[in-house]
Design a protein around this nucleic acid. Structure first.
Lengths: 195, 195
DNA sequence: GCCTCAAACGGAGGCAACTCCGTTTAAACT
DNA sequence: AGTTTAAACGGAGTTGCCTCCGTTTGAGGC
């Protein structure tokens, strides 16, 4: 194990206090973005993280840098959740829980549409990678389900991915999230092998 | 003639002072955008136009509104220039001069890329119209040239348009504009009928 | 010419982005 | 433990966005 601690750290050795502040900033930002949208004031984020605004800007020269990191972090967590769920639930339940979580994730991203577009246009690699990671996670869950004979085998990962991303296009409303969840449940019913 | 004055005025009857200020703002903005890019401070533009910032915002609720109007105005002027050049020069020279002017126009728009993208995504009509106007202008010049037997007749407006817009994709540099001009001259040499 | 009043004006004020630089501190060296 | 120094900090300062509202003014009616 070359990197004993959590991976995903870029590379450059940071001073202990610097790393502490940086981590705290990302954590606070993730929550703030989820709760109040990406338009949240950066000063507010710095304040909540207990650092000066200068520190925030040293670590993240633009708002997009911060958004990108949060995005990447959450995507990674989402992929990791697949394995954790697979280990602790029957394969069909794991798939169901994961898809619900996926919807939750997308919900937080709806407000970010604008910033994500900007990032997407300048860093397509990030999106390609992220997307790949998610696809693989879904594929693992699906394969588990098939092998346990709990999930039909005539539906591929791509089909499911397509169905899930179409949820994203439901018009915005207070209902949005609930509706997404209902669609996932519906999807699951269709996916289960008939007894 | 239903509209004796210059057309292109939207519609709503404005008070005399309002129209004056509005026109002045657009004029100043056009120059400022050309000289310093679209990022120019709106306060600066208001100041130079001799009006308060409030007035600017009343006329143009967002930066994009202002950019859009300037864009439209210049596009119209560009199209009009075609006729003026056609009236005062031999057909091949008119075409050449117009294309050079077109490059000059595109040069000022390079910095606007970002704002234009935002506008484009919310107002496709504007771009469709503008593009059509330009196409027609080019077509007129080309037809004149053919009829005067100065320009080859096997090259269509679409071909030329394509060639010209490809100039836009030359990477940014101090050289950019000069390079564009050279390409236009090259294009013209190819377009002239051999004697 | 004067009155009226809605339209138009303009700038103070609040807020957030981003910069700059004097101060603090982790950590390497002795 | 003490010294050194470059890294990191932080917040005051500058600038720009945008809103709000009291003041001014063009133009139609008398």
């Amino acid at each position: 194990m070359a990197t004993p601690k959590n991976a995903q750290t870029p590379a450059p050795k940071l001073r202990a206090d610097a790393r502490r502040n940086r981590d705290k900033l990302v954590e606070v930002a993730a929550q703030a973005f989820a709760e109040k949208g990406v338009e949240t004031s950066l000063e507010e984020i710095a304040r909540q993280a207990g650092v000066g605004i200068g520190t925030l800007y040293r670590h993240f020269p633009t708002r997009e840098h911060l958004v990108e990191l949060v995005y990447r972090r959450e995507l990674t967590a989402l992929a990791a959740a697949a394995d954790e769920l697979a280990a602790n639930h029957p394969a069909d339940k794991a798939l169901e829980l994961w898809m619900l979580r996926f919807v939750g994730y997308m919900a937080t991203k709806r407000g970010m549409a604008n910033s994500l577009k900007i990032i997407a246009s300048s860093n397509t690699t990030l999106f390609a990678e992220g997307f790949g990671t998610i696809r693989q996670a879904l594929d693992r869950l699906l394969t588990n389900g098939r092998e346990a004979n709990l999930i039909r085998s005539d539906i591929g990962q791509a089909d499911l991915m397509h169905a899930m991303s179409s949820i994203y296009s439901i018009p915005d409303s207070p209902e949005w999230r609930a509706s997404g969840n209902r669609l996932i449940m519906l999807l699951m019913d269709g996916l289960r092998v008939r007894s």
